[in-house]
């Protein structure tokens, strides 16, 4: 995934069975953001792979004051890259897990 300066990783082990997954997001390189992030804590949240979109979560993070409005695209892209990797892996190892 492209280095957006915002890191998103799994916050729990993914067994490929649940549609919701816990993710953790934090800022690795504040210089790549347009606005100044509130604090550089790691933000943990659950994401529904089937019903939700990265853009929705990114906007909720902006609403909650974690990021500046101008950074919604970077935050959404970082989440999207990680979610795509999770879904790609689930398709590869999914059958073995069932």
């Amino acid at each position: 995934a492209e280095d957006t300066g915002v890191r998103v990783e799994l916050a729990e082990e993914d067994h490929g069975r649940k549609s919701t997954i816990a993710l953790r997001l934090w800022v690795e390189d504040p210089k790549k953001l347009k606005g100044k992030p509130k604090d550089n804590g790691a933000i943990e949240f659950t994401f529904d792979l089937e019903k939700e979109t990265p853009d929705e979560v990114a906007q909720e993070m902006i609403d909650s004051g974690f990021f500046h409005e101008n950074d919604v695209k970077i935050v959404a892209k970082s989440i999207r890259d990680r979610v795509a990797l999770i879904q790609w892996r689930r398709e590869r190892i999914g059958p073995a897990l069932q």
């Binding site: 280095d3 934090w26 604090d39 550089n40 804590g41 790691a42 979560v57 909720e60 609403d63």
Partner: peptide, 27 residues
């Protein structure tokens, strides 16, 4: 190790915890 919690109006819970020092410098 302080944890803060923000619940968005749409109901999603965001839990903020300090980023482990090692992860901050990792690029």
């Amino acid at each position: 190790n302080s944890l803060t919690q923000v619940v968005h109006s749409a109901g999603r819970r965001f839990i903020v915890s300090p980023v482990p020092e090692s992860r901050l410098r990792e690029s």
